[in-house]
Structure formats: C-alpha cells, structure tokens
C-alpha cells in the first residue's frame, strides 16, 4: 500500500441514494436505544459494487470486506444484492479485529449476520451498533466454538484487555446477553472520511432527501 494506493471504494452520501435504499439504511436518522437515548445512524457509506469486490478488498491483513457484510435472507430486500452500502466506520472495525486476532494468535471467524446489518434487518431486536458497522459477532476462534460460558468469558476478557473501551455482551440467555457467540462492540461511532460529499449538501437538501 504505497503512496499511490487509494482505497478502492467510493464514499456516498446516504441521503442522496434512491428512496428504496434510504428507507432501509435510514442515513442520518436519529434512533433511540432501550434506555431512550438518541443516536444518529451513519450517513456516509462505502459503495460495494459486487461480491467480487467485497472478496478482494482487504480491510486489514486478515480481514476482508466480505466477512463484515455477509447477511442472510433476513436483510432488507434492497440490500441483498449489489451495489451494497456499508458504513465507513467498518474500516476501523477491521483494524480492531486485527488487533484482537494478534492477541488471540489464531483465526477469528465472524458469523453470518455478525458484521454490518442495516437498521431494517429482521434479526435486530432494537437499536444495534451492527447498524453502525461497529459491532461484530464471532462464533469461533481457532478451533474453539464460542458457545459456552467458559469460552465466551475468556475471550471477552481478552478483548477488553486488548481493545480499550470495547464493550462485550455478558454471557447469558436473555436479551442483551449472548450464549453462542462473542459480541464485540465499539459503540455508536460514525466515520466521515475525507472526500465525503458532505459540505455541498446542506440542511435543506437533507430535508429534501428525507
């Protein structure tokens, strides 16, 4: 990745996307978590033209884009095909995962539906940071299936030591807990890369697009 390297994905303003996509991505929309706190969904996305692109774009030495955007039939229909759109913060998620992988010293397997999910993905039970592209579900590390307390607690602790400020779901069967995967969560982070078509679109345009 020398000086000539340019990140190969175009940044798009979600508010300028067509209506069917805006309705499922909800760019810039304020949503409320279970405690009633407001959070603003990402407005800027990388446009992923094809699955082939997703397969070929390495976000970090060990994590390719496809691993963080594989969703199943429960994803909103406009986002099951291509081009697909993923919040720009996904690049930072990959860097955190890389750091975590260094710490565990082996393969880290991200679950299907376990990276970015749109706010309209049917498995969402409320506001989830998966819709910011800043949370990840890991179902296996090396040969260890993360489906019991011992494994989940062990790798949660390693994640918290390795990644300052990361939040992990506690083990358990209830809502907000996890018992068959490790949930790493970096919060409601929004990334606006340089070159994002932001300044040219003011409040009026935002209102028009909503």
């Amino acid at each position: 990745m020398g000086e000539a390297y340019r990140f190969p994905l175009r940044v798009v303003d979600g508010l300028r996307l067509e209506r069917s996509l805006r309705d499922v991505l909800l760019p810039g929309r304020v949503v409320y978590d279970d405690a009633g706190h407001p959070h603003t969904l990402p407005r800027y996305f990388y446009e992923v033209p094809s699955w082939e692109h997703a397969m070929n774009i390495q976000l970090s030495p060990n994590f390719a884009l496809w691993e963080l955007i594989q969703t199943d039939v429960r994803e909103a229909a406009p986002l099951r095909g291509f081009p697909r759109f993923v919040p720009c913060a996904v690049t930072m998620l990959a860097l955190c995962l890389e750091r975590f992988r260094d710490a565990v010293g082996t393969f880290v397997h991200v679950a299907a539906n376990g990276g970015y999910r749109s706010p309209r993905h049917a498995v969402n039970t409320g506001t989830t940071t998966h819709s910011w592209g800043t949370a990840v579900n890991i179902y296996r590390i090396g040969d260890v299936q993360l489906d019991d307390r011992e494994a989940i607690d062990r790798y949660s602790a390693m994640a918290r030591q390795t990644l300052p400020g990361v939040w992990t779901r506690p083990f358990g069967p209830n809502r907000g807990q996890t018992d068959d995967q490790l949930h790493l969560d970096f919060g409601y982070v929004v990334s606006v890369p340089h070159g994002a078509p932001a300044d040219s679109l003011g409040f009026d345009a935002e209102r028009r697009a909503s």
């Binding site: 199943d72 039939v73 679950a111 299907a112 498995v123 018992d179 068959d180």
Partner: peptide
C-alpha cells in the same frame, strides 16, 4: 418471500 437459493444463517439457537 424466499428463493430456493436464499441464504440462511446457520445458528443453533
């Protein structure tokens, strides 16, 4: 609602 080739997350829960 589905296609035969629709993909489903295999999750044992």
């Amino acid at each position: 609602w589905l296609l035969p080739h629709s993909r489903v997350h295999v999750r044992n829960r």
